[in-house]
Design a protein around this nucleic acid. Structure first.
Lengths: 200, 200
DNA sequence: GTCTATATTTGGATAGAC
DNA sequence: GTCTATCCAAATATAGAC
């Protein structure tokens, strides 16, 4: 009689191969650009023929989606990892923004995939998108803990984050021309959101 | 004996056709996305066969470059058009930022071409790039006239501009969620750059 | 200057044998 | 699951006739 094994070695192997493909895809897009990903090149990189990839991913966009999901999970992890308020809100804001800009500049292609909409036919699946939403909600909770609860204040903070990051990546890649402004920008922001005269 | 005519009708016709091609290219990229531009489609749109386009532009990137140059010229014109200081620096900053965000959100594809680096093999030619530099320098002179001369202050302003624009385009296209923050953001910025305690 | 014809490359995706 | 073989579509760009 058939006994269901506790481990499904076949499924494990399959997942391992999928992970290998995703890793190789990151290498490719980092080297050639996000839009330059091709199924052929990717297959060769993992020692397969192109059609064999379709046993693991239904389409090229499914591969993009796997990259998006993994990047969003890394972002969520990155945000959650620094949830340690010090009692000094400004210091926490500075640390959080530094972490964000570093996360983005560490891997500009990942930033492009997660926070810009630049790939022609690709939209993340609802499941993958939910992960990135969770990341934003984590930021929201984090700054709420610092006393910043106005929706517009969160929006202003995300604008500052993407603006500093965008300029850094586009106009001074590898440098620190906008990274140097993070502390000052957070001071500006913190003063603004705390010295508000009236609730709008 | 040959007398050089005062007008070169042939050259005029040629320039007119080039302009027609550029106009059609804008229509195409606005409809299909920047990366989706194809020489075939473009040729068909102006009633030519694909190879005939090569009589006007040496390559596809030359077409991108013409778009870039035109967009940069429009930006320069947009910035120069509002060089009318009112004596109220904060009001001028607000007006200038509103104009910038409107310029970008009016044509997100143009914004993508000018201010983000997203097309795989394309880099603007030195001549085209010089136009966009002239635009930035115009902004620099403009805020210098308002008393803002620290280099880092210009960088912070451009970060605010691209950040607000990026978020508006990416997360609320057609809406005003980040546009609504422009006035408040400029107040924040102006207070920051004027209330500095010491010259850093 | 414009055309037809074509070279050349490259891409995503499928069929069917093994 | 992986392969070979192939389809199909699309792209940039060139050659050469008219």
């Amino acid at each position: 009689m058939f006994v269901k094994p506790t481990r499904d070695r076949r499924a494990e192997r399959r997942e391992a191969t999928r992970a290998e493909i995703v890793d190789a895809a990151w290498e490719l897009v980092r080297a050639e650009g996000l839009a330059a990903l091709s199924v052929r090149d990717l297959a060769r990189k993992v020692g397969l023929q192109a059609p064999s990839l379709y046993s693991y991913f239904a389409s090229k966009n499914a591969i993009y989606d796997a990259l998006f999901a993994q990047g969003a999970a890394q972002y969520l992890e990155d945000v959650e990892a620094q949830l340690t308020p010090t009692g000094d809100p400004l210091q926490d804001l500075r640390a959080g923004m530094h972490a964000f800009v570093r996360f983005c500049t560490d891997d500009p292609v990942r930033y492009q995939l997660l926070f810009q909409r630049t790939i022609p036919g690709f939209e993340p699946s609802p499941e993958s998108f939910a992960i990135s939403i969770a990341g934003l909600e984590s930021v929201q909770r984090r700054i709420a803990g610092l006393g910043i609860t106005e929706p517009g204040d969160l929006d202003l903070l995300t604008a500052l984050g993407t603006g500093l990051t965008d300029q850094q990546i586009s106009n001074d890649p590898g440098g620190d021309r906008w990274i140097r402004l993070v502390d000052s920008a957070m001071e500006m922001y913190f003063t603004h959101v705390t010295h508000r005269k009236s609730r709008p």
